[in-house]
């Protein structure tokens, strides 16, 4: 566990999804040149607004003042909301060993208790090619080399996203940590932990995922509104993982019969037509 906490810090300071406004307020997310432009332009705008002496002028002066503050502090609330940064290195990977830079991305942590031993769950998960069996948004995972794999996932609007990942830390039977490699459509880093649960209740499985959503935090917010938040996705994935490991199958109603197909009269009465059954 300790090893992983360290690993996560490595990929980026642990950033909670909510309640971090104050901490983020202190960070610099505007580039040096842009800060000067912001301060000078804002100053000019404020002066111009004040000389006009009208209501509109006061509004201009206020906008100008906000730009001056943005230039002086190097922090932009709008960029923050968008999960964007023009500060040096902010929009780029600042190191080969970092998939989601500090101050960027969204962290999600979810857990489930599964009535099976930790080792069994670990081994199943460690074969990444098993993951699409319970992670519905994954199309495929292909192991490409020692600790390396290629992932294809369904994206909104019928598109798909792909990335290569590597295991950068693992502890046999306890923990696996992975991160995306250069060129990923979505940068992410995650880990899964298998701990013996108390009282013979099986295994406490915990997933920590940090990802940099396309469109920044604003994009993530919009995705959540449309029910495609990774947080919900992980909850459901873990539920299916539990089903698969405890019962050997994933509960489903997909493909079952209903009166919805009545209009089309498709494939009715295969069995009931065969009399005598």
């Amino acid at each position: 566990m300790a090893a992983n906490e360290e690993a996560l810090t490595n990929v980026g300071q642990a950033t909670e999804e909510t309640g971090e406004g104050t901490r983020m307020g202190a960070t610099v997310n505007v580039g040096q040149a842009e800060r000067w432009a912001s301060a000078i332009g804002g100053g000019a705008l404020a002066l111009y607004g004040l000389t006009r002496g009208s209501l509109g002028g006061i509004a201009l002066a206020l906008v100008g003042a906000a730009l001056v503050q943005r230039g002086a502090t190097g922090h932009c609330n709008l960029y923050d909301a968008m999960g964007y940064s023009s500060a040096e290195g902010g929009g780029l990977r600042n190191s080969e060993n970092v998939s989601v830079p500090a101050g960027r991305g969204i962290k999600v942590e979810k857990s489930v208790t599964i009535n099976r031993p930790p080792g069994e769950l670990y081994r199943f998960w460690r074969n990444f090619e098993n993951l699409p069996r319970f992670m519905n948004h994954l199309e495929s995972v292909r192991v490409t080399g020692e600790g390396r794999s290629h992932w294809v996932a369904k994206a909104p609007a019928g598109r798909s996203v792909e990335w290569d990942a590597e295991i950068y830390n693992e502890k046999e039977g306890e923990m696996i940590a992975w991160r995306t490699l250069e060129g990923a459509d979505v940068d992410s880093a995650g880990s899964v932990h298998f701990e013996q649960a108390a009282g013979g209740r099986g295994t406490f499985v915990r997933v920590v995922l940090k990802y940099d959503p396309p469109g920044g935090k604003l994009g993530a917010l919009v995705a959540r509104l449309f029910g495609e938040s990774p947080e919900q996705q992980i909850v459901e994935d873990l539920g299916r993982f539990k089903q698969l490991m405890e019962t050997g199958e994933v509960a489903t109603t997909e493909g079952q019969t209903s009166g919805r197909s009545v209009a089309t009269k498709e494939q009715t009465s295969g069995r009931s037509a065969s009399a005598g059954r």
Binding site: G255, T257, G259, V262, T268
Partner: peptide, 10 residues
């Protein structure tokens, strides 16, 4: 209504 027969899914 007449609907498709159920089938084994799992």
């Amino acid at each position: 209504e007449d609907v498709p027969d159920p089938k084994i899914l799992n």
